[in-house]
Amino acid sequence: MENLIEIRNLSKTFRVRRGGVFNRSTVVTRAVEDVGIDIRKGEILGCVGGSGSGKSTFGRMVLRLIEPDAGTINYGGRDLLAYSAEELRQHRRRAQIVFQDPLQSLNPRRTVAENVARPLLNFGMDGRAAARRVDELFKLVGLDPRQSHRYPHEFSGGQCQRIAIARALAPEPEFLFLDEPVSALDVSIQAQILNLLKRLQVQLGLTYLFVSHDLKIVRQFCDRTMVMYRGKLLETGDSAPVYQAPLHPFTQDFLGTVLHARRNDAWERAAELAEDLEGAPPRMDGPHCPYAAACTRRIDRCTMAEPALQPAGAGRSVACFRHDPDLAAPSQATNSSPTGEIA
C-alpha cells in the first residue's frame, strides 16, 4: 500500500522555565524522541502507550499543530515542515483532528451549525452553501440537521463527538488524527462512535491516526499498532500479531493482563498497572533502553546502549536487544523464548 505520511526521526522537547529573572531553572521534558513510522493510505494506525508517553504530541506534530524540533514529515511526497504559511493553511483541508473532550472542542457560545461551518467559511465557501453542507454533514454523522441551531451544551457527549467529527470532515480531509476520541464517552456510546468512524473511513476512504490508551479498542479498531513509551517508539506491526505475540517486554507487560482476562475490571487493573509502569522514573546515566529500569528481561547491554528500531519480520519492528539478530547473546536468550508466556 502507498504511504500517505512518512515520518522520520521526529523529536520534540518541551522546556518549561521556572522561577523569575533570578535563579531560573528549566525543566526539560522529552515528549517525543526519534520516532519514525509510515502511515499508509487508507489504514487505521493505532498509537498506544501510557499517559505522558508522547502519543498526543506525536499526533499534533503530524498535523503541525506543534512544531517538531527535529525530524522530517513527508506528506504525500512533499516535505510538510517546509510548507509556507499559505501552503500550511491549504494543508489544513487535507488533515484534520478530533479531540478527546467533545464538549470542550466546540465553542460553547456558537451554535453547532456555526461550529461546523467555521472551516468551510475559512476556505472561502459562502454562507448559503456552507449551511447546505452543514446539513449534509449532520446527516452523514447521523444527526438531525434541524437541531443544528442549538448550542453544544444541549447535546449529549456522544452527539457532541458526532458534531466534532462532522466539523473535522467539513473541509473533506483525507487524514484524520483522532486524539482519544472515545475515552471521554460511556462504553455504550463508544461503540456507536467507533462504528461511525469505521463507516466513514470506508465510505470516504480516510486514513486515521488513532491515539488511545484503551488497548481493547485499538486492538479491534486499528489495522496497525505502534507502541510508545516515554516518547520512544518501541514496537510496530499489524494489530493482530502485536496483540497476540508482543515482542517488546514493555508491550508484553502493558498488554499482559488484557489478553488473558476478558472481564472489564481486570482490564482496568491492567491499565492501572500500565500507568504505574509510567510512574516511576528510572535513574540511569548514559544511553540505555527507556524501559531498562522496569524490564524483567534486561540484559547487560540494555543499561549501556539504546536499542534502535529493527525489523522483526512480517512487517513488524521492535526496539529491543533481545530481538536484535546481531546482538542477542545466546547464553541469555536460550533461557526462555522472549515471546513465550503471552502467546
Binding site: Q90, Q96, I97, F99, S105, N122
Partner: peptide, 16 residues
C-alpha cells in the same frame, strides 16, 4: 481550551 486548538487546526486566522 480545545476549541481554540480546533480553530487553529481549521486554519482560522489568529485575529479571527
Amino acid at each position: 481550551q480545545a476549541y481554540v486548538e480546533a480553530a487553529r487546526a481549521m486554519a482560522t486566522p489568529d485575529l479571527k
